[in-house]
Design a protein around this nucleic acid. Sequence first.
RNA 1: AGGGGAUUGGUGUAACGGUAGCACGACUGACUCUGACUCAGUUAGUCUAGGUUCAAAUCCUAGAUCCCCUGCCA
Length: 615
Amino acid sequence: MSHTSRPESSSGSGPAGSGDEKPLHFIEQIVEADNASSKWGVWKAGEAISGQREGAPRVHTRFPPEPNGYLHVGHAKSICLNYGLAERYAGKFNLRFDDTNPSKEEMEYVESIKRDVRWLGGAYDGPFGGGLYWASDYFQAMYDFAGELVSKGRAYVCQLTAEEVSSRRGSPGVPATSPYRDRPIEESLRLFAEMKAGKHPNGAMTLRAKIDLASPNFNLRDPVMYRILHEAHHNTGTAWCIYPMYDWAHGIEDSLEGITHSICTLEFEDHRPLYDWFIGAINEGRGGPGQPAKIHHPQQIEFAKYRPTYTVLSKRNLLKMVQSGIVKGWDDPRMPTVAGIRRRGYTPEAIRALCRDVGVTKVESSIDVVRQENAVREHLNKVAPRAMGVLRPLRVVIENWPEDKTDLLDFVVNPEDPGAGTRKIPFTRDIYIEQDDFMENPPKKFFRLAPGAEVRLRWAYFLTCTGVEKDAAGRVVCLRATIDPATRGGDAPPGPDGKPSRKVKGTIHWVSAKHAVEAEVRLYDRLFSAEEPGKRTGKWEDDLNPASLETVRALVDPWLASSQPQEPAWADGIRRFQLERLGYFCVDPDGTPHKPVLNRTTTLRDSWAKDAAQG
RNA sequence: AGGGGAUUGGUGUAACGGUAGCACGACUGACUCUGACUCAGUUAGUCUAGGUUCAAAUCCUAGAUCCCCUGCCA
């Protein structure tokens, strides 16, 4: 078997025209082996997409979120994996809400999940989409299958309370017990019907699978299949008062949808025997002459979660952050939720590239968050238009420039994309530069502005600082300077040899005071200051980064205020820029064209800051 | 104690008995109208101990370490 993805070696099922040389990860290897052996059969005519799928090996995956919270970057990995497989092998990808517990689930989450899955590229309704499904649509089928299991002596109604079950659970060497295990089948059948009919209160009884009370795998110690929950369900209303447990429900959901590879995370490895047992028990007494057909038996495969450093991901803790006001909501740009990183300015392309990069294995490893930052830098560097803005303005008056004169200069929209062209930016006597770009007593390797020093104003003129004005406290409030008119556009005039007559080491950004627009800029940093929040004290709250959000009033290029023809057409409608030398930013919905609000997605790499910090 | 997994440079990942490779980071340098980008180079690894073999990250034996498992959650 081939372990690389050359099209000619992938049984004709590889991605057409893919130049991707990355080796296959273990799940792709499983899929290719399955395809080679036709383990899952082939797509039939009615299932074909534009004629190209008929007869090709079936690959059908799904993403099965419970609608009880917002999706986070960990889920993103699962979505990319599952959708990626469907796309790569011309299969299908389902979005399925695993809504088996009405007491925890809310419709509020359903819409956000659909939006997030789509945003990430999980087009469950696209060419490789199998559609949208609900576990609750299978409640009747599940109930019928459960009845069959009872009839076959494979399940029974247990009247132990939750506490009793727990206390009788046993231990690794000591089997669990239930006095109801061997009750007559007819009695279980009757009680199970009564459970469904609503004749018993919550907790009075459960339906349990009859497997092995002595199993060292506790999941097999007669797990509960149904519990009584007199609670309205967002989808089925009050039609049901018994609800299936995950282990019982999940395999049936997969089976009914024809899922081939049921991919989940590592903690479900212990549940795989149960997954297989349930489907096997249903299929017992099926498939023979005069018997109903066997149901489809998908293969469960487990992989390790995406676990970024400096991040907390559990739904419970994310909910706590939202409810306690540590962040402003599920979509706070500091949140690791999909909604949060989207508002932060991350692109779906960056997230997908990241998921490809970190790979798919069974090793529980943590991923350095800088890889997230690098992923978005790499994408945005290629596509984001550039602009200038000053986060902490310092006024500069150009003494040899007429007060009322405006010069229009060419500004390159995106040096990485020549097709983006240029645009005009205004230059006037009063400009603002970044406070960090001036030092009165600079160290040796400071290439920026200082008294008597010359720098280049990006795309404008060479500028020399001629004077410093200070307030009573001794703070620099304004600079006097002159420009060299011969350097218009930012180039020194050519010398006798045709080369530039002189060089400046530093180039700084600036805005025209008269034209600049005031913007609220939210400078985000990591939410936590510890690599593993809570490791030190046991409480992640102790590792919150107090400086995770700093808001400044910046002065930015008016070009940013409203949508421009030279900008890319962002699929998600979120406008993103590079503020030159500062980082990548996106436009937040909190702002208006008159008073934009920008979120800093991430800074640029800054080797100067690193040097300066190290002395 | 029992069961299920995992272990390759700082981090992530490849190898499927036959040259330990790639990416990220870090460090040098080049280039540069973004101290960005780009480019070149350097750095550093098979958990341990035995064994099989001409040859072991890979197979065998013993051990170590880490993660998950006793919800009527998923």
